[in-house]
Amino acid sequence: MKEIELRLLEQIKRGNEMAFVQVYDKYWKLLFNSGYKRLQKREIVEGLVQEVFVEMWQKRKSLEIHTSLNSYLYTAMKYKVINQMKSQMVKEKYVAFVTSKKLSFGSEVEENIFYNELNDAYKKEVSSLPDQARKVYKLKKYQDLSYAEIAQEMQISVSTVEKHMIKALKILRNNLRNYSMSLGVLCLLNSGVF
């Protein structure tokens, strides 16, 4: 590893945010480009890049890099992309399965009840997000503001907006996971598989 990278890494381990910002500024575009080549979805790739940096910051005290900072970050991004691709493949297979079987969830009344329950759960989870994360999420989701516009509106930095958005999405994914699993089980039950 280059001497300058070693110094930056040591400063990051000690919690020096400016050193972290230097690394972020230097490698963000490289990581974004490598992810975009494979996924071709800007928002998803931006989120994955942010996850790489957030995890790096969270693990900074125990961070051990034996090659180079570039290799470490590139490899971390590569695994994020692979996991995203696996997740997307599962979703696509599920959609193909549902389409091929022309599944019905039951009567229209049952479908409406399930949709309303899911929608209520989603609204409840959004409203229970931490204040800043909830505000960022709502400005992005409902007003379609860019991260820069949100940062200006809330008078915080763009990186802080990104951190709040990552936090909000992670909480929503985890807390609504049971509903998506229930939907899958319901589809399989109605298909006659079980």
Score class of each variant (00 low, 15 high):
L39V: 08
L30G: 01
I65T: 05
V52L: 07
L31Y: 05
F20G: 08
Q11R: 14
L48D: 00
F32E: 10
Q50M: 13
E55P: 08
R14S: 12
F53P: 06
V21P: 00
F32A: 08
M18N: 10
W28S: 09
V21N: 01
A19G: 05
L63W: 00
L9P: 08
G35L: 07
R60E: 00
M18Q: 07
K41T: 08
I12P: 08
Y36V: 02
S62K: 11
F53G: 00
K29I: 01
V23A: 12
V45G: 08
E55Y: 01
F53T: 04
Y24N: 02
W57P: 04
L31E: 00
R38L: 11
A19R: 07
Q22G: 05
A19L: 15
Q11A: 09
F20Q: 05
E46K: 10
E64H: 06
N16Y: 11
N16W: 10
K26T: 15
Q50V: 15
I65N: 02
V49D: 01
M56H: 01
M56L: 14
S34C: 08
F53C: 05
L39F: 02
E55V: 09
I65F: 01
G15L: 09
M56R: 00
G47C: 11
G15Y: 01
K29V: 05
E43L: 15
R14W: 06
E10I: 05
L9W: 13
E17Q: 13
G35I: 06
E5P: 00
E5K: 11
Y36N: 11
F32M: 15
E64G: 04
L63N: 02
K41A: 12
V49R: 02
S62V: 06
I65R: 05
V52N: 04
L39P: 08
Q50T: 14
Q11I: 06
E51H: 10
V23M: 09
Y27W: 06
K59E: 07
M18L: 05
K13M: 00
L6A: 13
E17P: 06
V49L: 06
Q58Y: 04
I44C: 15
I44N: 13
L39Y: 03
Q11Y: 07
V49Q: 03
V54N: 12
I44S: 13
V45K: 03
K13W: 04
S62D: 10
I65M: 03
Y27K: 00
E46W: 15
V52T: 05
I12L: 08
Q11F: 15
V45F: 07
F32S: 13
K59D: 06
K61A: 12
L39M: 10
V23N: 07
Y27H: 10
L9A: 08
R38G: 02
W57H: 00
Q22R: 15
V49W: 04
L31T: 04
R42Q: 12
R38T: 01
Q40H: 14
G35A: 10
E64Q: 06
S34L: 00
V54E: 08
R38Y: 11
K37T: 02
F32P: 11
Q58T: 03
E10Q: 13
L63D: 03
R60P: 03
K37I: 08
E51G: 03
E17T: 14
N33C: 06
N16C: 13
I65K: 07
F32Y: 15
W28L: 09
R42I: 15
K61D: 01
R38M: 09
R42G: 06
L63I: 07
K29S: 11
W57L: 11
Q58N: 03
K29Y: 04
N33E: 12
V52A: 10
M18S: 06
Q22I: 12
